[in-house]
């Protein structure tokens, strides 16, 4: 228990500094080592709020992230379930191929993906062959594009369900239940910790990503939260105060999401995870 307190404190130290800098006037940022700012100010938050229009950016990011959470919780989890519970001939090869795509650095896939986002048929003034318009460039749909099914979530779901007892499925099949019903009515409700992790991880992944939104958007209307913060990261002129204030603001929705979801981790042991 002492170990837990100590480690939690250590983990929080850098974060305390972020908060401290967020409330410190820009001229004093990173000055003396002082956890409590001597002249606390809300000016940095004001700058982040107005100059970076962080509220608009957070709304955009939230729309993108929540869509991604939803699609992953269904499509990716369903696929992972099948890889674990309903394996078919060649399914492992398909699985490995899907996962291996994540081992290629974004630098290499960025431009082909950009070309694809531009060439989506019938979007953004494109014809049926994906020509003539701007496709999904500079839209929130374009920002979502690479994340709607994240291979890592498929992997995660497969690993999770590979520990799930198969007796439930067999019993249900004898009772004549369809495979969809077995998944949706029996296993999915048991997988609340999994859904919680998929939700939090997908949300954070989208929320924190920078490179893809950077190339796919141009206008202020489609800016995501990390792009808004990047304004304070100017090469040679980093504005630490507003940056940290913005980062603290940007962290709040994710903390709320996590607090809400972390209860899912309690349920299992306390209640007994499987009631046969």
């Amino acid at each position: 228990m002492i170990f837990l307190y100590l480690l939690s404190f250590l983990v929080l130290v850098p974060f305390m500094w972020m908060i401290s800098i967020a409330f410190t006037p820009e001229e004093q940022a990173f000055g003396q080592v002082a956890l409590i700012p001597t002249d606390p100010t809300l000016g940095n938050f004001e700058t982040a709020w107005i100059d970076a229009n962080i509220f608009r950016a957070m709304t955009n990011s939230a729309i993108v992230a929540l869509t991604v959470v939803l699609s992953n919780s269904v499509i990716a989890v369903m696929a992972g379930y099948a890889f674990a519970m309903l394996p078919f001939r060649g399914s492992f090869a398909v699985f490995v191929t899907i996962i291996s795509t994540t081992a290629i650095p974004v630098s290499v896939t960025l431009i082909p993906l950009f070309l694809m986002a531009r060439g989506i048929p019938l979007a953004g003034g494109n014809d049926i062959f994906g020509q003539g318009g701007s496709g999904l460039l500079d839209t929130l749909a374009g920002v979502m594009l690479p994340y709607l099914v994240l291979p890592m979530n498929i992997f995660l779901a497969r690993q999770y369900f590979s520990m799930a007892p198969t007796e439930l499925a067999e019993a249900a099949r004898i009772d004549g239940a369809g495979e969809w019903a077995i998944f949706a009515r029996i296993y999915l409700p048991l997988a609340r910790p999994l859904i919680a992790v998929v939700a939090v991880f997908s949300f954070v992944g989208v929320w924190d990503d920078f490179l893809w939104p950077l190339v796919v958007t141009n206008s202020a209307e489609a800016q995501t939260v990390q792009l808004a913060l990047a304004r304070f990261l100017a090469t040679g002129n980093i504005q630490y105060g507003p940056l940290m204030a913005g980062a603290v603001l940007a962290t709040i929705p994710v903390v709320i999401l996590f607090l809400f979801n972390q209860r899912a981790f309690v349920s299992g042991l306390a209640d007994g995870s499987v009631k046969g």
Binding site: L110, F114, V215
Partner: peptide
């Protein structure tokens, strides 16, 4: 006039994508 500000560190990345796609 449609102006976008891009940080120095990101300019090359955006221009490469833009020239590749004709945008």
């Amino acid at each position: 006039l449609d102006v976008t500000f891009v940080d120095w560190g990101d300019l090359s990345t955006k221009l490469n994508a833009g020239f590749a796609a004709g945008t």
